[in-house]
Design a protein around this nucleic acid. Structure first.
Lengths: 234, 234
DNA sequence: AAGGCGTCAGTTGCATGCATATCGAGGTCG
DNA sequence: CGACCTCGATATGCATGCAACTGACGCCTT
């Protein structure tokens, strides 16, 4: 009847009896919020797959909370576009199809290109050095883990996304990247080598302080991603 | 203790677009949704001002519903960024400051320019003709109404935003336009004449099928808006 | 006079219970 | 045999009640 407690969310990190005087309430740590984060993560990790139906009572039980905060979390996710609801039916985890993926890549090309150009000269050198190390380690590694692939990807793109001096642009690019990541790329592993090469090219342009090259390498990278997808899909 | 019923939302209204199995149907007509739409409109119409605190019980009473669906609506709005909440305090209507406004305009410049170029040749001529009429009527009118100013603005920009063949781009531009509209422009009325002129220039480029000119006139229009704001602010 | 503490009103957080809508299985009638 | 109706299992929609938290005010102590 009861799900294992492993997935349950909790304010305390452990089970019962919340400690009321723990600070760190910047984000707000109520059940709605925790559920929001948990579900958000489940979707990104594909523990909830695109198109899957969400049954409130069951998910609430899995998370160990009642339906009320769960529903609030789902509404928030709907506002962000991670789930949708039709008529009076269940929530559905958003599924990104090829067409939408390509459309989002097109927009990313525009925005990320601009962000890269704007970020030139704004990025701490040690940060770039660290990301370079990460890419090289990943490339040299004998084992492959999806998670570290995505992480390195986030870190590289984050370099210019976070330092373009335009928080609105930063936010929108993040949203776009969520969309593209929801599209399940077959044979993602085959992207490791081209990703690494292209990422290093972007890094070189950023380190050289060459705005034109930064924009151009980023645009080329995103186009390469599009070509790869089109090639593997057909 | 009861508010006047004037503002209350209701299912029974003439909302007759409730086709049972229309494919695009996302809305659903439950109280959460109605509250969502009502509040969304209140924010856009500035009946709820930026920075204003939202007291759940009171707003629920005004809308004639209980707190539960109201809270769900607020969560959704938070996902969309129209309201924010700090720690365990009340929701606050989002206030867009000058800096964010300018950042959003910068992004709009990029995206709307591209959208206009993409939309060339895709827009029904009669639609363009109608928008042209509207602009000319508005310009010639002796009275000024904020609402029709915004409406004409929406219609003109909508021409290319809706017909750029990239729904993802469409959606993001819409979100950006919500952000910029939340910024209260002082002396908006003084924008009527420049808006009209610039809108007609955009229209001419679209009608002529000149993609380069379309992008350029749109970019110029948005830059003009920025200049105007900077001039009136100081 | 200044700082600590209790109290209270106002507010949000959440579980619960009941009303209502949906879907499918199986029976009925044309 | 198929269209339609019924009924029950399963879902979602929402109001309500109560617990917990917050901020303000005033009293008490020092």
């Amino acid at each position: 009847m009861h799900a294992t407690d492993a997935l349950k969310i909790s304010r305390t990190g452990q089970d019962h009896e919340a400690r009321p005087d723990e600070p760190g309430q910047v984000a707000g740590l109520n059940l709605s919020n925790l559920a929001y984060r948990a579900i958000s993560e489940m979707i990104r990790d594909r523990r909830l797959k695109g198109g899957e139906q969400i049954v409130e009572a069951r998910l609430a039980d899995v998370l160990g909370i009642s339906r009320t905060p769960l529903r609030e979390a789902l509404q928030r996710l709907e506002g962000e576009g991670l789930v949708r609801k039709f008529a009076n039916r269940s929530y559905i985890v958003r599924a990104v199809e090829l067409a939408e993926y390509l459309q989002a890549l097109k927009v990313r090309e525009l925005l990320e290109g601009e962000a890269a150009a704007l970020a030139v000269g704004q990025i701490p050198r040690d940060l770039m050095a660290r990301v370079r190390c990460e890419i090289e380690e990943l490339r040299a590694s004998t084992s492959y883990h999806t998670h570290s692939h995505w992480q390195s990807d986030d870190n590289l793109h984050g370099l210019y996304i976070e330092h373009c001096s335009n928080p609105v642009m930063t936010e929108f690019i993040h949203a776009l990247r969520v969309t593209t990541r929801l599209f399940e790329i077959a044979r993602l592993k085959d992207r490791l080598e081209p990703d690494s090469v292209e990422h290093l090219a972007i890094l070189a342009a950023l380190e050289a302080g060459d705005a034109k090259a930064a924009r151009q390498t980023v645009v080329a990278h995103i186009r390469s991603l599009k070509e790869f997808t089109l090639a593997t899909v057909r």
